[in-house]
Amino acid sequence: MNVAAPQTPALKLAYRAYVLLFFVYLAAPLVAASFFAFNDSLFPALPWQGFTLDWFFSDSEPKLGLFHDRRLLRGMQNSLLIGLAVATLSVTVGTCNAFLFERRDFRFKGFLYIMMIVPLVIPGVILGISILVLASMTANGVYDRFGVELSFLRPGIPLVVAGQFSFLTTITTLVIAARMKKFDVALEEAALNLGASRLRVLLTVTLPFLKPALIAAGLVAFLVSFENFNTTLMLVGSDAPLTITMYDRIAKVGSTPVLNATSFFLIIASGTLALISVLVQRERKPGEAG
């Protein structure tokens, strides 16, 4: 008997129904967004006009499919580029941070740890505008004084990367540090004792141990970057990533089924990546330090 569960059948049933309802609530908008991607109609609305894949693959107006829509493809490409850059950077710095906070003792460590966490609780819009302001002030200052235009400090992909990196590094640090906590330092000492150089210890013992966390952190960073809107909105230039492109469409053109196709594509892609990141972290259990 599970003492934690409700004991009367009616209560049990009600609880189950509530949980079921909750998951229906979770799934409803995702299903709704995907649903119209397959409707052979020019508008994402009922009635159902028959199944089609045109909103993915058709190459002509008026039913220009996602994979032939230049602007959406361009956005996807930008998102991919930004996501890869942010994932690489934030995992690299996150790894350094994990070593710093898990392995080292130094003055003001407690204070700096709080500083490390703070980006997670700053609203994304504010992170966006503050980085925009600093970058612009710097660029203006340099231009006024030296007459040099630093275009990477103007809204565009480099700033978007900086903005997303600024809060994702906290997440990657926490993920990697959590794994590092489980690392037995004796493994490194054993490797040193067996004659390995410091670099070799890092490459053959420490990093392989951290690998599941590095992969998971990278995937998380990539995903969050791919779906990010708030921070990106403030920093975006002419090379807009997919979410911004899609938002512009919704706001300016109104919704068309190609946006449903894009949504479906995003749901499937991020669902798959999320699943991989969970599985990667799961698999480590049998291999725990002995």
Binding site: P29, A45, Y247, S255
Partner: peptide
């Protein structure tokens, strides 16, 4: 737990878009 997490990774935009599909005048 996984079911809980999967919508977590879907963009805000897609979720809001889904609600629009459900709730607007011509919605489901």
């Amino acid at each position: 737990f996984l079911l809980c997490l999967v919508p977590l990774w879907v963009s805000d935009l897609v979720r809001a878009f889904g609600w629009i599909m459900l709730l607007r005048e011509t919605g489901i």
